[in-house]
């Protein structure tokens, strides 16, 4: 049961990551690969505050999220000003550079990472408590993002993605909207990082590699880009399938490549058969819009 609970908590954390990435890349149309580093910023800041300051978890997780948010504004404001495409390159550099810094700083524990993050909840109540917290936060994140993209603000996001020049010429400040969307998405990822740090009590650089963004992106695309519940479906599927396979008791030399093969086949199948993802509007209903599909 403990194993299942851990998997569920991990899935809930990834639902938060996928949902926030979907806000940035799916709804906002902002191409970034730096999502793992904002997850890392949240995790490290919360972890360090817990270890060195003994700060209460709610406060340190919140500060982790704020730190991720501030970092994301610095990245977005500088790169979006140059051009939208520049964000992709800048985010890659930011991701690789900052992770390298984390790997080499003494403060962050270097390549060995940060261990001994204090467990605030102990004993038998720990797992149920974290289950409730992570699932609750996942629900709040998914529904919160859904609320953002549905109302008048979401209409503006859709219009901006459709035709940015006309949008701006109507008096809308596309630049500041992009920065805000990016900041919200990255801040939520930072919050996920904080919870992750408290639950696993250990964070290390290799948990936040750039390849993580490929995994989170796969969740978003498979579930359905720019749909409210797509990231949930994507995160559950992509994390549950590998866990389910481990029950098949296959030898390790088959198991390892099998997971990669399954992911690749899934992505290819979806690209060809259902590019809008599981929760996305089907091809036969071109009238359905992003906001409606949500």
């Amino acid at each position: 049961m403990e194993y299942l609970a851990t998997v569920t908590i991990l899935i809930a954390i990834y639902v938060i990551l996928a949902a926030s990435y979907n806000l940035v890349i799916g709804y906002g149309g902002l191409a970034t690969v730096a999502h793992p580093i904002f997850f890392a910023i949240g995790a490290y800041v919360s972890g360090l505050l817990a270890i060195h300051v003994g700060m209460p978890p709610i406060l340190s997780v919140a500060l982790g999220a704020v730190a991720a948010m501030v970092a994301s504004v610095l990245l977005a404001a500088s790169s979006l000003r140059v051009s939208g495409d520049y964000l992709l390159i800048a985010s890659l550099g930011f991701q690789l550079g900052l992770l390298q810094l984390i790997r080499n700083l003494e403060l962050t524990g270097g390549p060995g990472g940060l261990s001994n993050i204090p467990s605030t909840i102990t004993g038998a109540a720990r797992t149920p408590a974290f289950l409730a917290i992570t699932i609750g936060l996942a629900a709040v994140s998914v529904l919160g993002i859904r609320a953002i993209v549905r109302g008048p603000y979401g209409r503006a996001i859709t219009a901006m993605r459709d035709e940015e020049l006309a949008f701006t010429a109507l008096g809308r400040n596309a630049m500041s909207m992009k920065i805000v969307i990016f900041a919200i998405g990255c801040g939520v990822a930072g919050m996920a990082g904080g919870v992750y740090a408290y639950y696993f009590q250990y964070v290390s650089p290799e948990q936040f590699e750039v390849l993580q963004s490929a995994q989170i992106l796969t969740m978003v695309v498979l579930g359905g880009m720019a749909t409210a519940y797509g990231p949930v479906v994507g995160a559950v599927l992509l994390l549950a399938i590998p866990q389910a396979i481990t029950f098949l008791n296959l030898p390790q030399n088959i198991m390892a490549p099998l997971q990669g093969i399954i992911f690749t086949v899934l992505v290819l199948l979806f690209l060809f058969l259902r590019p809008t993802g599981i929760m996305g509007a089907s091809e036969s209903k071109p009238r359905a819009r992003a906001t409606e599909a949500a």
């Binding site: 603000y153 209409r155 503006a156 008096g171």
Partner: peptide, 15 residues
């Protein structure tokens, strides 16, 4: 919706 985006001041622009 195309029209609702377009007033000089758009209330929905600020999160």
């Amino acid at each position: 919706e195309n029209l609702l985006i377009a007033p000089r001041e758009y209330a929905g622009e600020s999160i």
